[in-house]
Design a protein around this nucleic acid. Structure first.
Length: 627
RNA sequence: GCUCCCAUAGUAUAGCUUGGAUAGAAUGUGGGCUUCCGGAGCCUGAGACUCGGGUUCAAAUCCCGAUGGGAGCGCCA
């Protein structure tokens, strides 16, 4: 399961260590080894480190090492330059190593075992059930989805969760609005999607509230919808269920699938919050305040927490309320309870049933439900929340609670995948209330992308309408996913139609295109896969550059996993596609001069197809044979 | 007031954790490639590390200090 690059690197490290030993030098060589930009293939800076440590001349040390370095399986020659030890690889040997590994491991080549035996829960989307998903929420959906894919490819067992906030004030506003459609001037739902219809109501209620005082009425609705058996609670449940169905139609169009919906109302029904508070008070993390500003509330007092992280020092308040003086928990309290459950620190008393029998990926989507049956969810080693960076404070409070309770490991496994806000051009925030999302929903985005893809496919091939549409769907999605994921997640994303619908240059369709080209070359060669290449012979730099990239697939995947950064994969497939483009432009495969060159190149094309296909799938992009 | 995030070609970005040689793609722009496995492509030119100190043989990267932009610090969710 070791990548070819790791194998070559380890061998070089071993040989270097042996050479150092002969000269009585010591140095941790592995970190000094890296690809070289222009001096040979691989370089080591160990001589520079040793020279510094022992106050010697780096040039002398490097020369001494180079002179003693044995060749092993993969080294062709060694030179030195200003204290750098530069190694030229034996290209044919390295290429053979790569090709044999890829062809042997096939689909498991783009995999890793670093997470084997560990359980991770990822939470993403978690949108209020009040308006359709917009391009800002798409960032959570795609980030969460791809990080989950990456974890899965690295051997973790991953549970994908969507938190349904059905008891919030926003939901109440829509419930109120639904009962006052005439006042708002809204007709019954006709042909539009249900989430869009609710969104219209939500915006109208907020507009109406500017000139009318409906505060009291909304509060009444909140109260009523939390009481079982009321009209409001029944209406709410039906409304949210319908909303979720509409929301998932959208999620599926983004290629996003999940495993379980956790309803806030079920968290309340299962008294998770009460159990969490018991635990917090028992361990003296939370306490009830008798007097002062927070009289009657249960709070976390930051003064009581040992090793308080800096973000909690010098706040305006030195306490954080968990339970209001009227006895009701706030958002943070519920989130702490939810995460204690995720980590298996509270009993899994939820019952579950199928919400969607089969998502497009073939798997069911479950939901918490009082009339369901117990199932094995939760109990994670790692939790990952793809949530907006603006919620960093609340997220760090959850982590703080875990730490204060003494669950150090769990606190370490708590990860907030904070992403920067998505804005519209002109610094316009995507505000649910104000309806700035109108025209910027995921449904709009997907529709536009598909139309553009359809136009581009045109009449290029003899395709049935059905095939054409399927390809347009896949290409459109590739463009969208690529553009949302290529930006480092902590940065603010300014949404632009031009960028979101980019099909050229560094783009999803570009990567798909290179995959398609490779497929056609193999197809023309008579078989779609090359099973074995006895001896690889490479004549050029472009070929070896491609080999070097292909060697690193697993290392790249692992890096993307440990850093939870999908843009690392996007960068990689972009470079890989470009390198492959150069390769096939410069080196004829089918019309290669010799049979051996032809076979070697075919093997390389096959390896590329395997790696690119695997990487695209992890990114949630469909590799397509022709486009 | 305090905390966090961001700053790299015209635009939009990768690299920063772990310092290393010529800062890498894209887009736009100048020039070129279409009898050749698919031009959603390829080749080629010009173009960037916010500023000031410091550490180092070596700084986009580490440290200190400015500056500019964003977010957060609620008995809201």
């Amino acid at each position: 399961m070791k990548s070819p690059y790791a194998e070559v690197r380890n061998e070089i490290a071993m040989l270097l260590e042996r050479a150092l030993k002969d000269s009585n030098y010591t140095c941790d060589v592995l970190p000094t080894i890296d690809w070289s930009k222009g001096f040979g293939d691989i370089t080591s800076t160990c001589a520079l480190k040793i020279a510094k440590q022992m106050s010697l001349s780096a040039v002398d040390v490097a020369n001494s090492i180079a002179a003693r370095l044995q060749k092993g399986n993969y080294i062709e020659s060694v030179t030195t330059e200003n204290g750098f030890v530069n190694i030229k690889l034996n290209r044919d040997a390295v290429a053979e190593l790569l090709v044999s590994k890829v062809l042997e491991e096939r689909d498991s080549y783009v995999r890793s075992g670093i997470g084997t035996g560990k359980r991770a829960i990822s939470e993403y989307i978690s949108a209020n059930p009040i308006h359709p998903l917009h391009v800002g929420q798409a960032r959570s959906a795609l980030l969460g989805d791809v990080v989950s894919n990456i974890y899965e490819a690295c051997g973790f067992s991953v549970e994908r969760e969507n938190y349904i906030d059905d008891l919030g004030r926003q939901a109440a506003e829509v419930v109120w609005g639904s009962a006052h459609l005439d006042v708002l001037g809204i007709g019954p739902q006709v042909s539009e999607k249900y989430d869009h219809y609710l969104g219209k109501i939500y915006v109208a209620v907020n507009e109406y509230a500017k000139s009318h005082d409906i505060e009291g009425e909304i509060n009444d609705v909140i109260m009523l919808m939390e009481q079982p058996g009321t009209y409001e609670s029944k209406f709410l449940k039906e409304m949210v269920e319908q909303f979720i169905s509409a929301e998932y139609a959208t999620a599926f169009s983004l290629g996003v699938y999940q495993d379980v919906l956790v309803w806030e109302s079920e968290i309340v029904r299962n008294k998770l919050f009460e159990k969490a508070m018991e635990l917090l008070e028992e361990k003296n993390v939370a306490k009830k305040v008798a007097d002062g500003k927070y009289a009657g509330c249960t709070v976390i007092d930051f003064n009581d927490v040992h090793d308080l992280p800096p973000e909690f020092s010098n706040l305006k308040e030195d306490m954080k309320v968990l339970v209001r003086s009227n006895g009701t928990p706030n958002y943070v309290a519920k989130d702490i309870a939810f995460h204690l459950w995720k980590f298996g620190l509270l009993p899994n008393t939820f019952r579950y049933k199928e919400f969607i029998h089969a998502q497009p990926n073939g798997k069911p989507l479950y939901t918490t439900a009082d009339d369901g049956t117990p199932m094995d969810f939760g109990n994670a080693d790692i939790t990952m929340n793809a949530i907006d960076a603006r919620q960093s404070y609340e997220q760090s409070l959850v982590k703080l609670a875990l730490e204060a309770l003494g669950y150090r490991d769990k606190a370490m496994g708590f990860r907030h995948l904070a992403y920067g806000v998505v804005e519209l051009e002109g610094s316009v925030a995507l505000a649910g209330r104000k309806g700035t999302w109108l025209g910027y929903t995921v449904d709009d985005l997907v529709r536009e992308a598909r139309e553009k893809a359809m136009t581009l496919i045109g009449t290029r091939f003899q395709l049935s309408d059905e095939e054409r549409e399927r390809i347009a769907k896949d290409v459109a999605l590739a463009a969208i996913r690529f553009e949302f994921l290529k930006l480092s997640q902590e940065k603010k994303l300014v949404f632009s139609w031009e960028r979101a619908l980019n099909f050229e240059g560094a783009s999803g369709p570009y990567c798909q295109y290179m995959f398609a080209r490779a497929s056609r070359i193999l197809e023309s060669a008579g078989s779609s896969t090359v099973t074995r290449a006895a001896h690889i012979s490479l004549s050029s730099d472009v070929e070896f550059s491609l080999v070097k990239l292909l060697m690193q697939a697993q290392d790249v995947l692992e890096k993307a996993c440990t850093e939870t950064k999908p843009n690392i994969l996007i960068d990689y497939i972009t470079g890989l596609a470009a390198e492959f483009a150069k390769f096939y432009e410069q080196k004829p495969v089918l019309k290669a001069e010799s049979a051996q060159e032809r076979d070697s190149r075919l093997a390389l094309v096959s390896a590329f197809k395997q790696v690119m296909g695997g990487m695209l799938k992890v990114c949630g992009i469909t590799p397509i044979e022709r486009m």
